[in-house]
Amino acid sequence: MIAARPAEGAAGRARTGISLGRRVRHRTAVVLVWLSVAIVLLPLAHMFAMVTSHAVRALSPKLFTTSTAGVAGGLENAIVGTIQLVVLATVAAVTLGVLGGIWVREFASPRAAFPVRLAADVLAGVPSIVIGYFGYVTMVTWLGWGFSLLAGALALAVIMLPYVLRATDLAIGRVSEELRDASTALGATQAATLRRVILRSALSGIVTGALLAVGIALGETAPLLYTAGWSNYWGLLPSFTHNPVGYLTYVVWTFINQPFAEAHALAYAAAFLLMILVLLLNVVVRRVIVRHTEEAR
């Protein structure tokens, strides 16, 4: 019994086999990792809780069935306007951005690709209010479209474009040469390889970039103030020019400065809807992507 004890101790130490110093460092690292996670997640959770609690007052079916009237009413016009603006902007930005990204990565000579990449990166860094003002000068006044859906959507599209283009460019770049070779060796042309293998492999990267861009567009206010204006009305078949459009971020930005509880509630409700929209969009689109890439068509 007594003789067995030291042996047991040795066996125990051999089993864990890790020195005290290493264990302490491991623990510290784990704690730090969780701390960083908390630092990121806590403010997000707090913000979500705060927005939700303030928005509760305004959350009712009425929110979706009536439009704003002054600083009261519902958000119907703003919801429809936001969707119209962002859908139109997304169609434009994704079409141009994906084609541009493919061109830069697959077809452009290095000398032609460099300025395009540089321009995209610079554009991504331009403050959105500058793009809004540029849109105002060109589309709203010079082209004479007035505050309108088209002007607002194109301003958003310009903001989205570099993200989509660079995401496409990089996602295609990450597809291994081996996969490209394998397709080529089966007798595929460059176009067939691109369509059937490369874009398929790059799809989730491209979609991630597009979703990021859509999230940014949903949250923009400044460029829309200059291009879309604001309206208490909406049309299902919108006129693309000459009619201003309402949007949710305007409500957040303007109504919060009003001295009325109802206006505040509407502002928080608008913010709440934007967050839900971004969340849903991410969850749904990712689901679709996973299904699309992993399973047979």
Partner: peptide
């Protein structure tokens, strides 16, 4: 030419699709 002269590489290179679609690719 490549349809008549096939090639297999050092590392396996399955395409990101089903087993069936991989074989049916060519």
């Amino acid at each position: 030419l490549r349809r008549r002269v096939g090639m297999v590489f050092q590392r396996p290179t399955p395409f990101p699709m089903s087993i069936f679609d991989n074989v049916a690719y060519g």
